[in-house]
């Protein structure tokens, strides 16, 4: 007995099979004459300078983290969205409170500047210089 998810598995297998067969058929037909120039990675025809595997902009990581929070939130919301109607207004409020908490979290991120691609510099701390020098003396 094949379940519905079994059919999806067959779909994925068919896709993999299709790609494998068409690449294999092309392999039978195409030429294969590698030269030194062809074996270099493309960099506008110049010799390659340095490795691309270097440190990357930290913003990509921050975006991934924020995405993770929201993705988990929505996975939690889907069962709620199935059943909240049977609990009336109370059921709706439970989800709404959860959503509003997340909205507050988002507002905080926005205020901190984490949603900007180029993050603005942090505000300078107001330091009382006299006090600092007094503490340093004592």
């Amino acid at each position: 007995m094949l379940t519905e998810f079994g059919k999806i598995f067959v779909f994925i297998l068919v896709a993999i099979f299709f790609v494998a067969v068409s690449v294999f058929v092309a392999k039978l037909l195409r030429p294969h004459r590698p030269t030194h120039e062809k074996q270099l990675t493309y960099e506008c025809g110049e010799d390659i300078i340095g490795s691309p595997w270097v440190q990357f902009n930290i913003r990509f990581y921050v975006v991934a983290l924020i995405f993770l929070i929201f993705d988990v939130e929505i996975v939690l919301l889907i069962p709620w969205a199935y059943v909240y109607k049977s609990f009336g207004i109370g059921g709706f409020l439970v989800g709404a409170i959860f959503l509003i908490l997340l909205g507050l979290g988002m507002a905080y991120e926005w205020r901190k500047g984490d949603l900007e691609w180029s993050r603005p510099p942090l505000p300078k701390l107001k330091v009382d210089k006299e006090k600092v020098s007094q503490i340093a003396k004592s």
Partner: peptide, 13 residues
């Protein structure tokens, strides 16, 4: 055309 194209895999890939 695409079927007949050489499949170039660079050394450093």
């Amino acid at each position: 055309k695409l079927i007949q194209k050489e499949d170039i895999v660079a050394d450093s890939n």
